[in-house]
Structures are given as C-alpha cells and as structure tokens.
C-alpha cells in the first residue's frame, strides 16, 4: 500500500477514537452530575455519528468527486 493509504488508515482510526472518547466523556460527565445513566449511550451515538461523518467528508466524498 502506498503512503497516502497508510496515512488515511491511521487518521481514520484516530478520528474514531477521538469522536467516541470526546462524546462518551461528555455523556459520562452529564450522567455524573445529573445522576442519570442514559446520557453516555446518547453520547456514544453522537460520537460515532460525528466521527463517521468526518471520515465521510474527508476521505470518501472528496475522493469520489475527483
């Protein structure tokens, strides 16, 4: 594989980790202060959706326009 693919490979992984960590962390904090237990699941969904959207914008949509 060429280096551009290798770069994209690790960047996709970083985006997924970042999205889930960020929004799950926010969800856990909200749960901690409001004494609830479902915000972490909502955060997980938002994190997954936002990181997949970012990957779509960055690697899939631009590439198919070329």
């Amino acid at each position: 594989m060429s280096t551009s693919e290798e770069s994209a490979f690790w960047t996709i992984l970083s985006y997924l980790i970042a999205g889930l960590l960020l929004w799950c962390g926010i969800g856990l904090l909200v749960d901690h202060f409001l004494k609830t237990n479902f915000f972490v699941l909502i955060g997980m969904a938002i994190g997954l959706a936002s990181s997949l959207y970012l990957i779509w914008v960055r690697f899939i949509r631009i590439d198919s326009n070329k």
């Binding site: 994209a8 490979f9 889930l20 997980m44 997954l48 997949l52 779509w56 590439d63």
Partner: peptide
C-alpha cells in the same frame, strides 16, 4: 484504484467503529 479506495475506507471505518465501540463499552 480511485474507485475502490473510498469503498475500502468506508468498510474499514465501519468495521473499526465496532471495535472501538467495544473498547468504550468495556470501560463504561
């Protein structure tokens, strides 16, 4: 290659999302 690359990345992202989902669930 230019046609296959986005498809491969999409599949990789979806598969890897599940793995990281598991990691987060293991901690949560």
């Amino acid at each position: 290659r230019s046609i296959l690359q986005p498809i491969a990345f999409l599949g990789f992202a979806l598969a890897e999302a599940l793995a990281i989902f598991g990691l987060v669930l293991a901690f949560v």
